[in-house]
């Protein structure tokens, strides 16, 4: 088995006051292996984006620990360690409009990281690096001189990807990178992400609400609901043999581009129940985990 690149243990992220906390993440644990894509799905407000941002240190976590390449990221304190961390882990953001500074050209956006990390000796080297990054995401060198608003949504997202790649990271958190894009453009971006993963040996944490895209791009999927991971397993397992009723409900709600199928689709409703305090992570099948009590797990597996 491949090495663990990221280990999340009992992660909690609470916002608001200590008396009345909003439990955005309520104790989750998972691992990400080198070279794989872990899909994190859930509906809005389930805590999936917060998870991504906590892992990349945009938020200070409330409790738990996040180990990245064997080091606890909360214990990174020196400027040198933090810079090193930033080089190893990068993020692709959801909104291709809000994630690019409108006052900067594509070239400036991509080279921002070079400026911060002092990664070039002269202007020519900087230009060369920007050019080759633009080409690697399917744009041309001439695009470097254009402002963000001159690009279409898909092209903007490519610039966002080039920026994330600029420090040559090994781990990328993609926070709903395609949900703001048109259908035909989504496919372009997903293909690009897959191709880059192959070329550069990247590991992805792919956060999304679109189950079909997640199933397509992920090796394993974690289903998140109200701050908890309810089910985790290989993409095929989750899709073909879901165990938790919430996962079943979610899957039954995804519309398929198939009229005949849609006409006869039966949606499985999910009634929210508070988590049983005795609930824990149970390995229902090899590599397929579900959150619940032993009794529930047996009941659901039927």
């Amino acid at each position: 088995m491949a090495n663990k690149i990221l280990e999340v243990q009992g992660l909690k992220q609470h916002f608001g006051t200590a008396k009345d906390p909003i439990k955005a993440i309520d104790g989750i644990s998972f691992d990400v292996y080198e070279g794989e894509t872990l899909g994190l799905v859930g509906e809005s407000g389930c805590g999936k984006s917060t998870t991504g941002r906590s892992i990349i240190r945009l938020y200070d976590i409330t409790d738990g620990q996040i180990m990245f390449k064997g080091r606890n990221i909360s214990e990174l304190k020196s400027r040198k360690d933090l810079m090193q961390f930033n080089r190893e882990m990068q993020m692709i953001f959801q909104d291709p409009y809000a994630s690019l500074n409108p006052r900067m050209t594509a070239g400036e956006l991509i080279a921002e990281s070079f400026d911060i990390h002092g990664l070039y000796k002269n202007k020519a080297e900087r230009r060369e690096k920007v050019g080759s990054l633009l080409e690697s995401v399917g744009l041309t060198r001439e695009h470097a001189y254009r402002y963000a608003h001159e690009f279409s949504g898909g092209q903007r997202q490519r610039i966002g990807i080039a920026r994330a790649l600029s420090l040559d990271p090994s781990f990328i958190i993609a926070d709903e990178p395609i949900s703001a894009l048109d259908v035909s453009i989504q496919a372009q971006v997903v293909n690009l992400l897959k191709q880059l993963q192959k070329e550069r040996g990247l590991t992805y944490l792919f956060i999304a609400h679109d189950l079909s895209m997640v199933k397509y791009i992920s090796d394993r999927i974690a289903v998140m609901y109200r701050g908890k991971i309810l089910e985790l397993g290989s993409a095929d397992e989750i899709y073909n043999n879901p165990i938790h009723p919430y996962t079943k409900s979610l899957l039954s709600a995804v519309p398929q581009p198939n009229p005949e199928y849609e006409r006869n689709r039966v949606r499985i409703p999910y009634k929210h129940t508070e988590h049983d305090p005795a609930a824990k992570v149970i390995e229902a099948r090899p590599g397929h985990f579900v959150f619940g009590t032993e009794a529930q797990a047996k009941e659901w597996a039927k």
Binding site: I185, S212, Y216, P257
Partner: peptide
């Protein structure tokens, strides 16, 4: 065709790249 091809087909293998439509409108 392009629109249909851009959607992942859940029953087929995910090794295949999606049939993306190149360019933009």
């Amino acid at each position: 065709w392009g629109l249909l091809g851009s959607m992942p087909d859940l029953n087929n293998s995910s090794d295949e790249l999606l049939r993306a439509i190149p360019g933009s409108p």
